[in-house]
Amino acid sequence: MAEEFNFKSEVKKLYSLLLFLFTLFVVGGGGLIYYVNNPDVFDFESKTETIAVAPIEEDEDRIENGIHVRTGLIDAEGLMTVVNNCTNCHSAKIVTQNRMNTERWNATIKWMQETQNLWDLGGNQEIIVNYLVANYPPKAMGRRMELTDIKWYELED
């Protein structure tokens, strides 16, 4: 019995030791991780400066409301061919701002190839131009448009 009692108490001691070491590990390790991430935690004179990090999209090519979120381009046939060939040097914003017919989109591509180091698009050119003409065609504006999108407000003196 005495032997058994001894054995039980040894196990208990060992258990307590392990529990202590584990607690030390969790608290100490956690604290260390916190300190690495917040090196100013003991620096009571300076404020911790948080630098905003742009959240990284889970799917960088996701579409919302028919728009390719990353570029602002309309989701339609040929979208990714346009993204992959037309947004390396410049932003897609210069595409979405413009309105041209087939001839002028082709002329624009030719100009970029002649002066801006754009590569030969091969069979992709037709896909790209078809996409652009379908989604960004010219619209008639006449000699002067009416004022639109007026945000009315009460003018205070």
Binding site: V36, N37, P39, T48, T50, I51, V53, I56
Partner: peptide, 14 residues
Amino acid sequence: MVIGAELVFGSKML
């Protein structure tokens, strides 16, 4: 990098 993570040693940057 994790969403919203603080930049390690961010405060030490120029």
